[in-house]
Amino acid sequence: MKSYAIIDESEFPLIHIRFTGNKSTDQNFRAYLDETKACYRSEKRLAIIFDASQASIPALSHQKMQAQWLKDNRDLMLKYCAGTAYVIPNPVIRAVLSMIFSFQNQPVPYQVVKSLEAARRWVDSLDLIEVKK
């Protein structure tokens, strides 16, 4: 199976999720969602940078899976995620993100930017110390 995304937790509490450009399949997309949820296992405040610079457009069924994941994990995100930055230089991929958010709103603060540097600056401004009670 070719990975849809690679998750790097080496800078925790900052998580990097880089989309590989591989086509979404039921198997690799489910693995991406499961691995993303696993980032919350420590139950500590975190922030995520999604690097979609190389992303392929996920199938509509996978966009809906992503929206359902946001709905199912809303409380987990509200409690532990300070925010998410999306690096999306491609306007088509930005439109896909908007479509996903039309199915289900993003429950935490987020920023869509065109570079990793801009994403890092935004994430660095977030409060990663306290977990909401």
Rank of each mutant, 00 (worst) to 15 (best):
R45Y: 02
L46S: 09
A47S: 15
A47P: 11
I48L: 05
I48V: 15
I48H: 04
I48T: 14
I48D: 00
I49K: 08
F50I: 04
D51T: 11
A52E: 08
A52D: 05
S53P: 09
Q54T: 10
A55M: 15
A55V: 12
A55I: 13
S56E: 11
S56G: 15
I57W: 03
A59T: 07
A59G: 10
L60R: 09
S61G: 03
S61F: 06
S61Q: 12
S61Y: 07
H62R: 08
Q63R: 13
K64P: 04
M65T: 06
Q66S: 14
A67Q: 04
A67E: 01
Q68K: 15
Q68I: 09
W69H: 11
L70T: 07
L70S: 05
K71L: 06
D72P: 10
N73Q: 06
N73S: 07
R74M: 10
D75C: 00
M77S: 08
M77T: 03
M77L: 12
M77N: 03
K79P: 14
Y80E: 03
C81N: 11
A82Q: 10
A82Y: 09
A82R: 12
A82K: 09
A82G: 11
G83D: 06
G83W: 09
T84L: 00
T84R: 02
T84Q: 03
T84Y: 00
A85L: 04
A85F: 02
Y86G: 01
V87F: 10
V87W: 09
I88G: 00
I88S: 01
I88K: 05
I88A: 03
I88L: 14
P89W: 11
P89H: 10
N90C: 09
P91H: 06
P91Q: 07
P91C: 03
V92I: 15
V92F: 14
I93V: 15
I93P: 05
I93T: 13
R94T: 10
R94N: 10
R94K: 15
R94V: 06
A95S: 09
A95I: 04
A95T: 12
V96K: 03
L97W: 06
L97N: 04
M99T: 15
M99Y: 14
F101M: 08
S102W: 12
S102P: 06
F103P: 00
F103A: 00
F103K: 03
N105P: 07
Q106F: 08
Q106W: 05
Q106E: 07
Q106T: 04
P107A: 01
P107S: 02
